[in-house]
Amino acid sequence: MEPTGTALTEADWAAHRPAVFGAAYRILGSVAEAEDVAQEVWLRAAAADLSEVRDVRAWLVTVSARTAYNVLMSARVRRESYVGPWLPEPLLTGPDAAARVLVDESVSTAMLVVMRTLTPAERVALVLHDVFDLPFARIAEVLGATPAASRKLASRARTRVAAVTERPRASKAETRRVLEAFRAAAEAGDLAGLVALLDPEAVYVADGGGKATAARRPVRGAAIIARLAIRQVELRRPDAVRVVEVNGEPALATYSGGALVWLDTAEVSGGRITEFRRLVNPDKLPRIGHI
């Protein structure tokens, strides 16, 4: 790429911002924090002399990753004390999404949950190399490590996320069909119908973040999950459901009195739900919107 001059233009920034945001979101799992990182990168880039930068996109993504890495390191204690299971802040990715990002398996909910288990350095190495194809020499600069050490970090992370990347994925249409059938059965109080839609070893994960009522540990088993789903409908009495796309996959946004009360996503295999995820943390729901 030829040098672009001394400063980043707004047009250049508009072209590269999705990659900047996407790198930060994959590392952090938070839309709000990724937006903050993108703003910080823009301010730095707008004030920088980029006349010697031959690959502006790589430079911006590198700065984004370094900034996100610093956020992770400074927030480690807070993240480790999170109440109950953690789910990523959902990113709207459908045609009406306010935030545009490069969408692939690396921003799926399942992937971001696994990313949460990696060390900050492993996340950065994996995202920069496997998603953005940056060389380990550049990644080493971000992490303050050697290229060889950065390569090992990425390899270790790749092994950890293999459970997500290597398993078959249901189509969006199939996932939506099963989710909507699950919702209908729960609203009808159809215990047998719910059990039939769940793998016998299915797992239910709810994220309340200590700010909304939610199971503090994953719930396992089709029958108990089915009874829990029916009980939640009886307690909240939802009156509207909207299908949205988050993180590149179908999701059901459920409302009561016009307010969003929970967001459901699921992993589906063979027509049955293997993992059901319900996000009820009010801090993570506002960007989905009300009706």
Rank of each mutant, 00 (worst) to 15 (best):
M1F: 02
E2N: 11
E2W: 10
T4A: 13
T4Y: 05
T6E: 11
A7Q: 13
A7V: 11
L8K: 00
A14M: 08
A19W: 06
V20D: 02
G22D: 03
A23D: 07
A24W: 00
A24K: 01
I27W: 01
L28C: 02
G29W: 06
S30M: 11
S30A: 13
V31C: 02
V31D: 04
E33T: 13
A34K: 04
E35M: 13
D36P: 00
D36N: 15
Q39M: 11
W42F: 14
A46M: 04
A47F: 07
A48T: 15
D49I: 07
R54D: 11
V56A: 12
A58T: 13
L60F: 10
L60R: 10
V63K: 04
S64K: 05
A65M: 08
R66Y: 02
T67F: 02
T67P: 00
T67V: 13
N70K: 11
S74I: 01
R76Q: 09
R79E: 12
E80S: 12
P85R: 01
W86N: 11
L87Q: 07
L91D: 11
L92P: 06
T93G: 03
G94H: 03
A98R: 11
A99S: 02
R100G: 05
V101C: 15
L102F: 04
S106I: 00
V107H: 05
S108P: 01
L112W: 06
L112G: 01
V113R: 15
R116I: 00
R116V: 01
R116Q: 12
T117P: 00
L118Y: 04
T119L: 13
E122Q: 15
A125W: 01
A125R: 01
A125C: 03
H129I: 00
V131L: 08
D133R: 11
D133T: 10
D133S: 10
R138I: 04
G144M: 02
A145V: 01
T146L: 01
P147Q: 07
A149Y: 03
A149N: 02
S150E: 04
K152P: 00
A154Y: 01
R156S: 10
A157N: 03
A157V: 04
V161D: 12
A163I: 15
T165Q: 04
T165R: 15
A170D: 02
A170E: 03
K172R: 14
R176D: 13
R177F: 14
L179A: 09
E180H: 12
E180P: 13
A186R: 13
D190V: 06
V195D: 14
L198R: 08
L198E: 09
Y204F: 15
A215I: 06
R217I: 13
R220G: 05
A223T: 14
I224N: 06
I224W: 09
A226I: 08
A226D: 09
R227Q: 15
L228E: 14
A229Q: 14
I230S: 10
Q232M: 13
E234I: 03
L235V: 15
R236E: 15
R236S: 15
P238W: 06
P238N: 07
A240G: 05
E245N: 05
N247I: 10
G248K: 10
G248P: 12
P250H: 12
Y255D: 06
S256W: 04
S256H: 12
A259R: 15
L260T: 07
W262R: 14
A266Q: 08
E267T: 14
S269M: 12
R272P: 09
E275Y: 05
R277K: 14
V280D: 02
K284F: 09
P286I: 05
P286M: 09
P286F: 10
I288F: 08
